[in-house]
Design a protein around this nucleic acid. Structure first.
Lengths: 152, 152
DNA sequence: TATTGTTATACTCTATAACTATA
DNA sequence: TATAGTTATAGAGTATAACAATA
């Protein structure tokens, strides 16, 4: 017998009343599903986001990726190098700025990106399995309102 | 002029349709507020959570903290040592299990914990400033449903 | 034989300073 | 003078293996 035996549950009421605690635990759960479902593509969440942004914005620069994803420039370099070595992206000369590169999804990698995006949607299905369609839409809208309140 | 000049916004529609992306960005925003508001107490989010759980559950063990907060035992040791050296907690002999310690908030630290908890609520107010009372309650409930669907 | 707490350690993630080439 | 990309590096966060003491 312990002072807090397994039969007597831990009181988490204070933490459960805080947004940060609930947001962190929900994020951990969602990321857990994502890591599992994306293992087949060998893509981490940030790599998936980078690939998706490049696919949606051909010719995007590293600086724009950094601003959009809250990644610092030094930390993006190795990530882009890896994706380039895996032949998932290519760096082309930027049409007007010789300092920058224009990033594109490599020709042979378009299919992989599309399949990865389809798998990401399935991963969401798993994470949101216990929520109705209305609840899912509400949750997404409220999350956006938290991190980008001015846009809504 | 760039291929993606600042005037032409980056297309994030695919990412914004994914739960993981929205959850991560919302978490970053919330944690940002928390770090700023908790700087006065020199408490990181995990340290605040540990203090709060010990305050709500006097005599709780390190193992129980690890299970509740998804922290691995080796990573909790240094954290508890720091809190003990700062005289915020104390390790007492466990009443029935000589392997474990019974954790308590140090006598002189009860006030600090209460003030930190009040500040955490104010931090939530900041993060949720653009949400109505109804929306806040809904968001918290939906987040819990994501990470602990069986409990609801 | 299993569990609590611990040490050592490694790997990932994130952050800062400074450099180059170009704007 | 400022910016894009890069290098090197440091710090924080997270992970596994192995051990002593106890259950």
């Amino acid at each position: 017998m312990a002072a807090k035996p397994d039969g007597r549950p831990v009181d988490t009421s204070v933490l459960e009343g805080l947004l940060g605690y609930n947001a962190r635990r929900a994020s951990l759960a969602v990321i857990g599903h994502f890591l599992q479902d994306m293992a087949a593509f060998e893509l981490r969440p940030v790599e998936f986001s980078v690939l998706t942004l490049i696919a949606s914005n051909p010719g995007i620069t590293a600086r724009q990726l950094c601003q959009q994803l809250d990644v610092l420039p030094p930390n993006l370099v190795g990530l882009l190098n890896t994706l380039e070595q895996r032949a998932l992206i290519r760096r082309e000369p930027h049409p007007t700025d010789k300092r920058a590169s224009a990033l594109h999804v490599a020709d042979g990698a378009q299919t992989l990106v599309q399949r990865a995006q389809a798998q990401a949607l399935k991963s969401d299905e798993t994470a949101l399995a216990h929520l109705s369609a209305d609840e899912r839409a509400t949750l997404m809208a409220l999350l956006k309102k938290v991190y980008a309140p001015q846009q809504l």
